[in-house]
């Protein structure tokens, strides 16, 4: 045992623990239970190991040892690739696809979580070494709270108002409010669609929100989440029964048409509201100089 053994063990523990805190399997059923989780906990363990030896390396004046952080960076970029590839492969077999934007968002989250783990174990080991274990614990808790804060993205209900509208047919055209969704020819199908379909209007609260929900990836994410949470009335070979989200070009509202198995309006509105705003879809049009809009 050297003077560094305990601080490093402490750092590895806090890092792995913070990874566990950030690892949540929810309605999205991702990462999969149990094997997918083990992969991420193991990678979190490696990340915290890398973070934990940073402090001792500095104190020993082994400055070249810092270069191993670059190894960490390429290692976790690989994690992102792995997640992206897996999810893209699986997406082909989803009844309602996640879409590339959603997948990329998940992949980025997995990569960045590992960096947050490195950060947590790094600062807690350093605090332990420079002060004592109690300061180390306080710093560890503080950085976990910070990680948690950094990891929780925005929700759709913060940027749009959601309203239920009964879908209707005008000739062969299916409409949600005044937004044209698609053309369904067969009267039989039309009946089915009206029986199972639900329509929602997402009204953007700001000009930025308007651009964000216009993003096709963001819209696909909404459809996927609703279909995951409430089920979907669809099978392979029934391409007419497809949830769709279309945009009103005049005012940027988005009409969402879904075919849930559980036709509970309250629940559906809650699910749509809880859809994450994908960071790749977020637009900040008003940040552009001279582009301040009132909306």
């Amino acid at each position: 045992m050297t003077e560094f053994t305990l601080p490093i063990a402490f750092g590895i523990f806090t890092g792995t623990f913070s990874r566990l805190l950030m690892l949540r399997t929810d309605y999205r059923q991702y990462p999969t239970y149990l094997h997918g989780k083990i992969i991420h906990v193991a990678l979190g363990f490696i990340a915290s190991g890398l973070g934990a030896v940073f402090g001792p390396a500095i104190i020993q004046e082994e400055y070249t040892a810092i270069t191993f952080l670059t190894v960490a960076a390429s290692q976790f970029r690989e994690v992102r690739n792995m997640e992206r590839n897996t999810l893209t492969e699986l997406d082909n077999y989803e009844l309602v696809t996640r879409g590339k934007t959603y997948i990329e968002g998940i992949a980025i989250a997995f990569e960045s979580r590992n960096y947050l783990v490195i950060f947590t174990s790094l600062v807690s080991t350093l605090a332990y070494l420079l002060f004592n274990i109690w300061i180390g614990i306080i710093v560890a808790i503080a950085s976990m709270i910070l990680s948690h804060y950094l990891m929780s993205g925005g929700k759709l209900k913060e940027i749009v108002d959601i309203e239920y509208v009964e879908p209707r047919f005008d000739g062969a055209g299916l409409y949600v409010d005044n937004i044209y969704i698609m053309n369904i020819g067969l009267p039989e199908r039309q009946k089915e669609v009206l029986r199972y379909g639900m329509g929602f209007i997402l009204k953007p609260k700001s000009f930025n929100a308007r651009a964000t929900i216009a993003n096709l990836g963001q819209r696909q994410a909404i459809l996927h989440d609703v279909s995951t949470a409430l089920g979907v009335y669809r099978d392979s070979g029934t391409p007419a029964l497809v949830p769709l989200a279309k945009r009103d070009l005049d005012d940027g509202r988005v009409g969402v048409f879904v075919l849930p198995q559980d036709r509970d309006i309250e629940k559906a509105i809650k699910v749509i509201g809880d859809v994450p705003t994908l960071e790749n879809a977020i637009r900040m049009s008003t940040e552009k100089v001279g582009m301040k809009h009132e909306s």
Partner: peptide, 28 residues
């Protein structure tokens, strides 16, 4: 209508109505 319903299932396309006497099946 019955022919369209069958073809829709067989061809894995969507039946769209252009008018009362004309349907097309489109692969999307």
């Amino acid at each position: 209508e019955s022919v369209t319903a069958n073809l829709e299932a067989i061809l894995d396309g969507i039946a769209h109505g252009l008018s009362d006497e004309l349907y097309v099946i489109v692969k999307h």
